[in-house]
């Protein structure tokens, strides 16, 4: 960065985008509030679920969320509560929702981050090779794989993987976070967990790999045919260097967009994958909460996921602006 005018406006742009996303987050909190209040029956039910709760706790909730007051006052109280991390209480698990979700968040994040890193690496590699050897058998395979991979639903590919690698070949565990028969410790425990992660990560990655491959390939091919690449070649820059330096730089923007904007997909996908593979993360928690009609937990997860999606999109936009100097900051 030159540290001059252009750099300044970039930071201003970032600040502006952050400020802009605040109303969106507020909007989501309001929608969540309306879901609680407009649900049929007593809002208390929505906040504590269908569980037989002691009368004095119902009173506490009623007071805490100001349910005896007007809708406007209640909205403000609710916003205040949410900002303090007060998302309600899960009677199914008998802990506050925030605590419950945070306890499981790490496992989901491990799954998601591993997927993103793995899928991006594989998709990039496949896309680069396909673009470099365009129309070769390898390219045709990559294009075919990308098309098929994109259209297979996660729960189906997940079950297919379980059938093949767990049931038929018996190579990998089909479900859970770690082995229950042998209690591994230290490094072996991590190895055991990694083995449990392989199938869920594969299932979750498939579509992501397909997307990244397709996008890397097409944006590389486009770049390598652009005028400035021809110009760079007339300056004697070798083809390989052009591919790595110019081609991938141009491909970076769409790839980051994919990672950012398909975050929602990964979130939804991880809920399915966690269910199929019995991975005790937030997705699995969501699934269980639906079954148990545990509304507070469901609403809490919904709220947190929505905010997370907004934040990731925000980060994507900002990174995007940092990578491409042509983006106008207005």
């Amino acid at each position: 960065m030159s540290g001059s005018g252009a750099g300044m406006s970039l930071w201003r742009y970032a600040a502006m985008r952050i400020v802009q996303s605040l109303p969106l987050i507020l909007g989501i909190i309001v929608i969540n509030f309306l879901l609680i209040n407009l649900a049929p029956g007593d809002p208390v039910t929505a906040l504590i679920g269908d569980f037989p709760a002691p009368a004095e706790y119902i009173e506490t909730v009623r007071e805490q969320f100001g349910l005896d007051q007007s809708l406007g006052v209640r909205l403000l109280t609710y916003i205040g509560n949410v900002l303090q991390g007060e998302l309600g209480f899960s009677f199914n698990y008998r802990v506050p929702v925030l605590e419950l979700v945070l306890a499981r968040l790490g496992r989901t994040l491990v799954l998601m981050i591993t997927t993103i890193v793995f899928a991006t690496a594989v998709g990039l590699g496949l896309g680069i090779m396909a673009a470099k050897w365009k129309d070769s058998p390898l390219d045709k395979f990559a294009v075919g794989f990308a098309t098929v991979g994109y259209s297979i639903p996660v729960f189906w590919s997940g079950q297919l993987l379980i059938l093949l690698f767990a049931v038929r070949l018996g190579w990998l565990p089909s479900s859970g976070l770690r082995s229950t028969r042998i209690a591994y410790e230290g490094l072996a425990l991590y190895g055991d967990m990694a083995r449990h992660m392989i199938l869920p990560v594969l299932a979750l990655s498939l579509r992501y790999i397909a997307l990244t491959t397709r996008l890397t390939r097409s944006s590389l091919i486009e770049t390598l045919n652009s005028d400035y690449v021809v110009a760079a070649r007339t300056r004697g820059i070798p083809a390989t260097r052009i591919l790595w330096n110019h081609g991938l730089r141009a491909a970076a923007t769409p790839i980051i967009t994919i990672i950012g904007y398909h975050f929602t997909f990964i979130v939804a996908g991880s809920a399915l994958v966690e269910t199929v593979f019995g991975w005790p993360g937030v997705g699995r928690l969501m699934y269980e909460s639906i079954g148990a009609r545990d509304y507070p937990t469901l609403l809490g997860i919904l709220l947190m996921v929505s905010i997370a999606v907004i934040i990731v999109n925000l980060i994507t936009d900002i990174v995007y602006a940092f990578i491409d100097p042509r983006i106008k900051y207005d």
Binding site: S226, D227, Y228, A231, A232, N245, H246, R249, A250, I323, D324, P325, R326
Partner: peptide, 11 residues
């Protein structure tokens, strides 16, 4: 002729 197209726009 196309000076605008002879350089990589992001470098």
């Amino acid at each position: 002729q196309d000076y605008a197209l002879s350089f990589n726009p992001v470098i």
